[in-house]
Amino acid sequence: MNISRRKFLKGGVVAAGTIAATAVPKTLKASESNTDETLVTLIDISKCIGCEACVEGCKDVNSGKYPKPKKPFPKMYPNRVPVMDWSDKQDVNDRLTPYNWVYIQSADVEVAGEEKELFIPRRCMHCKNPPCVKLCPWGAARQQDNGISRFDPDLCMGGSKCKGVCPWKIPERQTGVGIYLDVMPALAGNGVMFKCDRCYNRIAKGEMPACIEECPNDVQKIGKASDIIKEAKEIAKKTGGYLYGLEENGGTNTIYISPVPFEELNSKIEKGKGKPHFKKVGDAMENGNNIALAMIVAPLAGIAAAFGKFYKGMKADGGSDE
């Protein structure tokens, strides 16, 4: 879909949107900005008109956090290390980039016998147990108590492991920024990783994430996990809709609700670099953590083996005495 059509669509719904928006609180309740509560968002795909107000809103409030790389970039060894430079392509908004943390996917589907184009805002899912955070080898990524995962631009080395382990390959790298420049830029690191940080600074002040605040159609809702999950299930039951994000990767703090199955949506959307899929995703951390649970019984196994050997030795000694 081209920009002008989107702009047109946005203009067309602004009036209706303003009326609808008044019904939705544009600030978080005190209990929700309290950092101890896990916050979950519900994204109702059937409501999205693809106007990209969310994309623009995200850029407006978060541009201060965007990378400002120093050029020329230091030479990196070996030659295979890719330079990722989005600084001259900051306007790209049809995929995720270090300068674009949310974008709109589209899919032509049939809903109740009618041809329809669906629009889907895509960004980080804010997994309940985020592999990007848990497997970051420096602790540069962190998860807040309210479930938001984000990267510390002062600590991130840009090695892109977070992207490698993310089931949706969400984080994007910008070369030429960050701490790696001060350590061994030729041999280690390659910039800083960027993605949606759920507008953590706005949430801490009790404000809404920009993409939610700017949406003229109230596509997204944010609130306490228990409330939102209950609501998502109720809507799905009432409308015969399909849910995504509740079970994926062991559960995420983003729930999509769609009028068509996600397998169908996944087959119709454009996928690829910076364009995440809608496939079924198992719990990525499960195998590694299951084996880690064995550490609890490992001391007992060691002690039992030692006792076993000790008594066997005693028996053998006793036997030779007789």
Binding site: I291, A294, M295, G302, A306, K309
Partner: peptide
């Protein structure tokens, strides 16, 4: 890494108990 760490813990406790 987790598997090998588990096996190391078994080893250490075996040694200490012995």
């Amino acid at each position: 890494h987790n598997l090998a760490a588990t096996l190391l813990i078994v080893f250490i406790f075996y040694l200490l108990t012995t």
